[in-house]
Amino acid sequence: MLQHPKVKGLSVGLLGFSKGGDLCLSMASFLKGITTTVLINACVANTVAPLHYKDMIIPNLGNDLGKLKITESGHFTFLDVWNNALEEPNHLSLIPLEKTPGPFLFIVGMDDQSWKSEFYAHIASERLQAHGKERPQIICYPETGNCIDPPYFPPFRASVHAVVKKAVFYGGEPRAHSRAQVDAWQKIQIFFHKHLNGKKSVRHSKI
């Protein structure tokens, strides 16, 4: 990535969503050349499968599928399935994000029905500050669900999940969610430009 002609500096930034978020946290924690990380509705513990890096293994955060809930429309929600990342032995799954050199931006949908995104963002904040690091930027969007896509993507509140092969409800009120997508996209660009390029502003969408 650092050799790519579009990369202007000596480092790159990462943007991760949902499970991709904890993968980005892991990359930023252990790989060189990554200085800026943006997480959209993500967990700060390793999830789904154990993470192997060199001679180290971070176990996956456990879950209890017995806590799956079904909405009135027949969709599954995963919000309460995951174990508490702060309790033993689940804390072993926490990603050591304090190892990263650069800043973080957490984008949080307050109606996320897949992850307790605000809870995880505050875990990250407390962990970073406990290690003498800068408090991360956290932006919360009311009535906004899990899938915060780029602007003008049709917001979808449910779909057949690629992993579990079942209809899953992600949350979000369409109008508020759509507005959050527009605002979050600008905030993400401003964050990356500031910390990677040294710029303070970006062009707004003309759509």
Rank of each mutant, 00 (worst) to 15 (best):
N63P: 08
F104S: 02
D80G: 09
F153R: 14
L23A: 09
H122G: 01
F76W: 11
N146S: 10
E118D: 15
I58C: 06
E72Q: 11
P50S: 10
I138N: 11
K32V: 01
Y53P: 00
E126L: 07
F30G: 00
A121M: 13
F76T: 09
W115K: 08
L86H: 11
W82H: 03
P151D: 04
C24G: 10
W115H: 10
C24R: 09
P142F: 11
I138H: 12
S93H: 05
T35Y: 09
I123Y: 11
L86E: 13
H75G: 04
N83M: 15
C140G: 09
S114G: 07
L97M: 05
T35P: 00
P59W: 13
V48C: 14
T144G: 02
R135V: 09
A49E: 13
D80R: 06
Y53S: 01
Y53Q: 00
P150R: 04
G66T: 08
F106N: 02
K99N: 05
L65P: 05
N83V: 12
F76S: 06
T35H: 11
F104P: 00
K133G: 07
L39R: 04
C24M: 13
F153L: 14
C147P: 04
H75P: 05
R127M: 04
N63F: 15
A28I: 10
D55G: 12
Y53H: 01
L79Y: 14
Y152W: 12
T37F: 12
L39N: 01
D149L: 12
S73K: 07
Q113F: 15
P59S: 09
S93F: 08
N90T: 03
G66M: 05
H131N: 06
S29A: 04
L25D: 04
D64N: 15
I123R: 11
G102I: 12
P101W: 15
D111W: 13
I138R: 11
D149W: 13
I95P: 02
T77E: 11
A42M: 13
F104H: 03
I107H: 03
P96Q: 04
R135S: 15
T100H: 11
G66W: 06
V108L: 09
L79C: 11
Y152R: 14
L86C: 10
V38Q: 00
E143Y: 14
P150E: 07
Y53W: 03
E126K: 09
A130D: 08
A121W: 15
I34K: 02
V108E: 09
C147K: 08
V38L: 01
K116V: 00
T36F: 03
T47A: 15
N146M: 12
S29C: 01
F104A: 02
G66E: 08
L68R: 15
S114N: 12
K133S: 07
H52Y: 14
I70D: 05
G33E: 03
N84G: 03
Y53F: 09
I58H: 09
P101S: 15
S29V: 01
T71A: 09
L61T: 05
Q129W: 00
F30K: 00
G33P: 02
T71P: 07
S73G: 06
P101I: 15
C43G: 05
F78G: 01
L79M: 12
N41I: 00
P103G: 05
L86Q: 13
T71C: 11
W115E: 10
N83K: 13
